[in-house]
């Protein structure tokens, strides 16, 4: 499974990559430290990722702008975009869902938790068993 992650926090990128390796799901992840790099890669005519993880608080281009740009391009419209960030006001969460985010994954405070949440989040996409009924917000 081809995964993109944009997050300015290096620790979180490491946690993310480590956790991915430890769950029973074939994947390779490409990480970006901001939205601009992510967009550049997406528009670079290489194979598109199967899922994009997007932090919200990033320098240069934050997650909201990034999501807006991704959903503005036709060929990216079907790519699941999962927000990966800390806790937010409910109205922000609702706004993201409205903008076309697929899921909201709240950064957990435990590594094991992170693994569980990632698996929960990715397995339906891998199985193309995407279920609308699943909660938009995934947290501890």
């Amino acid at each position: 499974m081809n995964i993109f992650l944009a997050d300015d926090d290096e620790d979180d990128r490491i946690f993310f990559s480590d956790a991915l390796k430890e769950i029973p799901l074939e994947s390779q992840v490409k990480t970006f430290s901001n939205g601009v790099e992510l967009m550049a890669e997406l528009l670079a005519e290489i194979p598109l990722p199967e899922v994009i993880f997007l932090d919200l608080n990033m320098p240069m281009m934050d997650g909201f702008e990034c999501l807006e740009d991704i959903r503005a391009v036709d060929k990216f419209k079907t790519i699941p975009v999962i927000i990966y960030s800390i806790s937010l006001h409910k109205k922000d969460v609702a706004r993201l869902e409205e903008m076309g985010a697929t899921r909201y994954l709240k950064k957990p405070s435990s590594y094991n938790q992170l693994k569980t949440m990632l698996y929960k989040c990715l397995s339906p996409i891998r199985d193309q068993n995407f279920n609308e009924e699943q909660n938009f917000l995934i947290d501890e």
Partner: peptide, 20 residues
């Protein structure tokens, strides 16, 4: 609280990784 929770989360992450 909002800003504090971020470093704390990291601390806890590392605590959990350290423990593991």
């Amino acid at each position: 609280s909002h800003d504090l929770q971020e470093p704390l989360r990291k601390i806890q992450m590392f605590i959990s990784r350290f423990e593991d």
